[in-house]
């Protein structure tokens, strides 16, 4: 099977998945309403912890919410694959002369597009509550690109889980139990440098922290709280970049993206080739 077949077949599958978003608009409403709610809740509730500068916190928090939301967004790859297995759609696909990678490629691409829509909605909400891109459009594009790439790689992890677990509800519940702590033991919502030692170390090497930190650098929203009087910018930076991973956030995140894809693209493809309903 040729690469051309992979591209056209994947496009056909992606189009099919996107039609579902059109037919079940509740799905999109829910996936976009939730991030809007998070932006508003976290921004105003947690923002009140920093009474001197609530606006600074709101800007700081945006990258964290972006990261958390798109990672959760990537989990629908898992439930989507599980649902297609359960309904016998994968059986049908597997008896067609399609490229064996195309169902997974189509699924992960359409879920990526779903994530793009969610990012746009959240960014607009952020802009309304005062979040600003302060380092220029190019840097912002790098930030969004890195987040979407990570979400895309994570989709392949979830695809594997979905193919192995086979029950959409279980995939969702299991994902929640793993991903919620993963996105909280990080610098997403509060500065990680003040956490207890163990959590601080985990947060320092957690890729969710580094995606968030890389995004903040590129957006120019690095600090949650104002600096202490007389503290230099360099000193403030070294305080929040307390691990190698955080100091090299972009490279470290890219490393994770490559690693996840290198492991889970072949694993998921192999699982797909053997997948049969029930």
């Amino acid at each position: 099977m040729t690469t051309a077949a992979l591209v056209t077949d994947a496009a056909t599958v992606a189009r099919r998945n996107l039609i579902k978003i059109k037919r079940v608009p509740d799905l999109l409403v829910f996936t976009t309403l939730q991030p809007i709610m998070f932006v508003l809740l976290f921004g105003y509730v947690f923002g009140s912890l920093a009474p001197q500068d609530p606006q600074g916190y709101r800007e700081f928090m945006m990258a964290g919410i972006f990261a958390q939301t798109i990672i959760f967004g990537a989990t629908i790859t898992g439930s989507g694959m599980a649902e297609d297995m359960q309904k016998g759609v994968i059986d049908r696909f597997r008896t067609l002369p399609m490229h064996p990678g195309s169902v997974l490629a189509g699924r992960t691409v359409s879920d990526l597009m779903n994530n793009v829509i969610v990012l746009v909605v959240m960014s607009l909400t952020g802009l309304v509550i005062g979040w600003r891109i302060r380092e220029g459009v190019l840097h912002a594009a790098v930030a969004f690109g890195l987040m979407l790439l990570f979400a895309y790689a994570f989709s392949w992890v979830m695809a594997f889980v979905g193919l192995k677990v086979r029950a959409p509800e279980i995939v969702n519940n299991a994902a929640f139990i793993v991903i919620f702590p993963l996105t909280f033991v990080a610098n997403t919502f509060v500065p990680a440098e003040n956490m207890p030692a163990v959590l601080k170390t985990i947060a320092g090497w957690n890729p969710v922290s580094t995606i968030t930190h890389a995004a903040r650098e590129n957006f120019g929203n690095l600090f949650a709280l104002p600096g202490r009087p007389g503290q230099s910018q360099a000193a403030r930076l070294s305080e929040i970049e307390y691990t190698w991973a955080l100091r090299h956030a972009e490279i470290y995140t890219l490393g994770w993206i490559v690693l996840l894809l290198a492991i889970f693209v072949p694993l998921s493809t192999a699982a797909y080739k053997k997948a049969v309903a029930r």
Binding site: R16, I19, V89, F93, L96
Partner: peptide
Amino acid sequence: AVDEYLTGYENLEMIGRLY
């Protein structure tokens, strides 16, 4: 094994494309 979110036409057209 039909895709219930797709119309009958879209289901068959998709399969045609995949062949």
